[in-house]
Every structure is written in structure tokens, then in C-alpha cells.
Design a protein around this nucleic acid. Sequence first.
DNA 1: AAAACAGGCAACCGCGGAAGG
DNA 2: ACCTTCCGCGGTTGCCTGTTT
Length: 247
Amino acid sequence: MGSHVGCWSIIEEEAGWRKGPWTAEEDRLLIEYVRMHGEGRWNSVSRLAGLKRNGKSCRLRWVNYLRPDLKRGQITPQEESIIIELHARWGNRWSTIARSLPGRTDNEIKNYWRTHFKKKAKSPINVSEKAKNRLLRRQQFQQQQKQQQQLQLDMKGIVALLEDSNNHYEVPSTLCSMANFYPNNAEEQGCFYSMISTIDNNDNSSAPEALNEEILWDGLWNLDDFHGNFSATNTTSKANLHNLVVS
DNA sequence: AAAACAGGCAACCGCGGAAGG
DNA sequence: ACCTTCCGCGGTTGCCTGTTT
């Protein structure tokens, strides 16, 4: 996004603090201040740097925009999968998630999540949204063909366990681990747990072949249904799930 | 061509915890 | 023990821009 000059009406508060978008001159003053004094003591910035900004505003500007170690550009697929995984583990603890992504700010990650994932979780409400979703699904269909191939590779890890009678009783616990991978998401956990329960119900003998491969496929497709385009964006995540299985 | 809509993101706000007096 | 200040975090706002109707 380009410069946002003019997007906020500049307000001079009673206390004399400036608000709204930062000017190049203000940025320069802040950078200069941090270079001389280091980070911290933000409330003294206005006095020492000649900025009419409060401490909070200065800190925010530095942390989210001016820090030299910030990574510019789009979130990469690798970063995206890390965000998904860490959010599944920690929820909205953006600063914690940001620590695992050098060069990315909590604000950036929070914005990314809200724009890319939060809306996808909502079911479509009106007709235009449904139409849009249909179009999206069509566009994603071809992509999913490729993703399915990757998924099949992941499945091989599970199926390998199924085919090994020595591992028969390890499968439910493995699925349990995968369910625990989503501690904050009851629906996703439910998919894994339903697989486990189906396995248990079919377990009328100790024969491993009672564990039908379709059971697991169904469960995984349910996961995809839940996410809509889960597989279109989450290859790495699945790879990690596979790692979980293998481990 | 223009209006309406949605996406993206910088910046603000309120709250709570830590530190210092 | 209490109060004040500072800092950091998560939530929210509001404008610009690109896309769709």
C-alpha cells in the first residue's frame, strides 16, 4: 500500500499531540532519535526529538514501520504456514507469533490473519458472496488437483501405519496427536476424533484391514470442507501434520 | 463511466502488567 | 501498600485502492 497521507485528518489534541499519518520529516526525527538514544523511554521522545507525538505513537511507528530489521513485502507461503500453526497453538497472541517470524510485526501478522483467514471461516450470508465463493472454488479446483497429489503422499504415512499390524494401536493415538494440533478448534479436532471413533467401532477384531483407508480419507476431506480452501493454502501445514504422523 | 463494494493496512484506543517512587 | 508512569498487547477504526456491478 502506498502512502496514506491524507487518510487521517490531522488532529492537534488539547495536549498538543499530533495524530494521523506520519510525515517523512517526523520519521526522520524519530529514526535520528533512536539512533542516538536507542529504543525505549518513548515518552521523552517528543521532548528530546522535537516531535509532537506521544510516546505510544512513537513506539508504534518505530516498531511497525521504521525498524531497520523489518522485512518488507508479502508474507511468504512458509511464513503463512507458520502463522497458521502458531495461531492454532496460541490463538490471538500476535506478539508471541511475531517472535517466531523475524522481521514481521504483530500488527502485520494480525492484519494478515484478519484479512486472509478470519473471513474465510465465516459462512457466506448473501447471494453475491455465494456466487463469489463458487467462482473461487472453481478457480481453486485445478489447484486442488495438485494439492491432492501432495495429500496422497501425506496419507501414505498414515496408511503405512495401518498396513503394519504392529502399529495398529498406534493409529488412534497418532490421530489424537493430530487433533491436539488444533487445541482451539473444536471442529477440526472433531474431524480427527470422529476418525478415531470410527476406527474404534470398526475394530471388531485385531485385523488391521478393518481400518478402512476410506475412513481416513473421509475425515481428511471433512477437514478440507471445513476450511473451504484449506488445501489450497496449507500444503506446508499438511506436511507438518505428516511429520507429526511420522514422528 | 461511475457508483458500490471489498480488501488491505497504518494508526489509534483502551486495558493491564511491570517498574519505580 | 499505594500511586503514578511507562510499556506492550490485542482490538478497532477509517481511509485509500483495486475490483465488481
